[in-house]
């Protein structure tokens, strides 16, 4: 087999795997409807608490920053999905007894988990836009949702958080029940979203912060993707590459440690 044929073969089987993972994840999403609906409802109630609670406490201050709150909450929800889905997937697959089957893919375990993460990000858009629509309907605050701008920014921002997801996914493979630890990061995500990148551009090196800054400009002020500076765009893309690379590297070490300890399929 020539190298070109082999490469084409590899691309084909990876695409085939991505298709299979997407179909499976979509089916499971639909076949656990209570889980899906309760997840959406919880997030919406959480937003209502922030919105209505904030109004009663801070009044005008909340009304003045409503757009920022909606954008921030939307991004937080998406980032939380990207970050937690991988860890949950690892835990659930181990409980189901299918994690070791996934490890035995011919495409490589890390690639499979990257594909799963990409599918999770994609599916998160479906639920994320439902939450966004509910928030805008509730507050009657209509934001600019330029899909060509919002989707790439959010996707790249989420992808940087996927890197952290891989880190915690790696911990879950070795230590199993770590939900309580990774829930702490839910608060960490708020800090990353609220980081003042406009005042301190270096903070854009943190995961999600650059995406949060750019998304606020896009949705609140209508800035289009191509109107951002090359520095902003480079930072957005760079962060979305570096953190997943670090995360996958850690995940690889963790799965090797789990296999050395003989606990890969344990739960």
């Amino acid at each position: 087999m020539s190298l070109a044929t082999e490469r084409r073969g590899r691309a084909f089987t990876t695409a085939n795997l991505a298709r299979a993972v997407f179909i499976k994840q979509l089916i499971l999403l639909v076949r656990y409807p209570i889980n899906l609906l309760s997840g959406l409802l919880t997030m919406y109630v959480f937003f209502l608490i922030i919105f209505l609670g904030g109004q009663s406490v801070a009044g005008e201050a909340v009304a003045d920053n409503l757009a920022g709150i909606i954008v921030g909450f939307f991004l937080w929800y998406m980032a939380w999905s990207a970050f937690s889905d991988l860890t949950w997937n690892v835990t659930r697959e181990a409980q189901w007894g299918t994690l070791e089957q996934l490890y035995m893919t011919t495409e490589g375990f890390e690639l499979l988990m990257l594909v799963k993460s990409a599918v999770n990000v994609l599916l998160s858009f479906l639920t994320g836009f439902v939450i966004l629509a509910l928030m805008m309907l509730t507050t009657w605050e209509w934001l600019t949702v330029d899909v060509l701008t919002v989707v790439p920014i959010v996707a790249l921002g989420m992808w940087s958080v996927v890197g952290i997801g891989f880190l915690f996914g790696g911990l879950a493979i070795v230590y199993k029940r770590i939900e309580n630890v990774f829930q702490i990061l839910a608060f960490g995500l708020i800090a990353l979203i609220g980081a003042p990148v406009d005042a301190t551009p270096e903070l854009g090196l943190l995961p999600l912060s650059q995406a949060s800054y750019m998304l606020s400009l896009a949705m609140e002020e209508g800035v289009r993707l191509w109107e951002f500076s090359p520095t902003d765009l480079t930072l957005l893309v760079g962060v979305a590459i570096v953190y997943p690379l670090l995360g996958v590297g850690f995940f690889r070490l963790a799965q090797r440690r789990a296999r050395r300890l003989g606990v890969l399929g344990h739960y």
Binding site: T13, L17, T98, Q101, T105
Partner: peptide
């Protein structure tokens, strides 16, 4: 426990064949 209980029988077969690289 080796399979996905919320997938159909055929969906399971298809998914595991894909893991092995088969279209």
């Amino acid at each position: 426990r080796n399979v996905y209980w919320r997938l159909t029988v055929r969906e399971n077969l298809d998914f595991f064949a894909s893991l092995a690289g088969h279209p």
